[in-house]
Design a protein around this nucleic acid. Structure first.
Lengths: 140, 140
DNA sequence: ATTTCAGACTTGATTTAGTCCAGATTTGGA
DNA sequence: TCCAAATCTGGACTAAATCAAGTCTGAAAT
């Protein structure tokens, strides 16, 4: 499936790209560095540059989504096209998916858009993950 | 007002901090680098580190808000406590304020919160600013 | 007015995340 | 098969921010 998908999008099919795709698919929300590790563990060798190039190509092609929460390096995920959002733990930085609260286009219409033509509304929820919340209680 | 505010919050009142505060107040959405320039133009000399220190102290004290849109260095603004959001232009990176679409707490309740304790919902609208939209039309 | 010291500031090195570059290699379609 | 375009490699480089160690200063207490 993956190889075919790449070819249909006019992208050359390379072992590196397939491995990058595989790494993100099996480890959602990975950073570029994590993908580098995963791919090396998988196919033995790949350059950092190739990882960045592959990730950008796949993001541009719409196969991957790049998310960049404040205070964290960019992360990548395969779930695209469904406009879901994310929760970030303030304590440990962990990240989880969250479905849209209101139908499938929450808050997409701003009250006053300042004349901007808006094409996407990105929502990031900030809080504390279950694990960190538990630890806070026990230490308190 | 500013000096008093700082003192009330238990922060030392220093010329650097006052100048940083002034710079952000008069130039909303500035980056740390821009603040550095502005303050130097104003009081003559300040270290980069002092700018970062002051900005963090003021953010921690709740006087400033830090926003970090993807692909941009951190920006600072004085408008705090009203939970407004931002529009970012994909073309030129310019940033504008946007009031909440739905009352004063849009999308704050996620559909499935994954067990996270959510304390803030941050919304970033992406699109094209009036200027860039105009230029695209003329060039097309 | 002086003393005192935690907090603030300075300089300079370091880290992190990511990009740029130039040359070698590989890919897919004619 | 063959070639131009696309991709990969390794290293140098940049931007943004942080760390470290020493010096200075605001403001509370004498």
């Amino acid at each position: 499936m993956s190889a075919t998908t790449l070819r249909e999008l006019g992208l050359h099919v390379t072992p590196q790209r397939l491995a990058v795709l595989e790494a993100v698919a099996s480890h959602q929300h990975s950073t570029a560095d994590r993908v580098l590790e995963l791919v090396r563990a998988n196919i033995g060798t790949i350059s950092r540059q190739a990882v960045y190039d592959s990730l950008s190509a796949l993001v541009d092609a719409g196969i991957l989504r790049r998310i960049e929460p404040a205070g964290s390096p960019a992360r990548y995920e395969t779930r695209v096209g469904d406009n879901h959002h994310h929760v970030v733990c303030r304590t440990c930085g962990s990240l989880a998916d969250v479905d849209c609260a209101v139908g499938d286009a929450p808050c997409l219409t701003a009250a006053s858009d300042q004349g901007f033509i808006i094409d996407e509304a990105e929502v990031v929820y900030w809080g504390t993950c279950p694990q960190c919340a538990g630890q806070l209680q026990t230490t308190a």
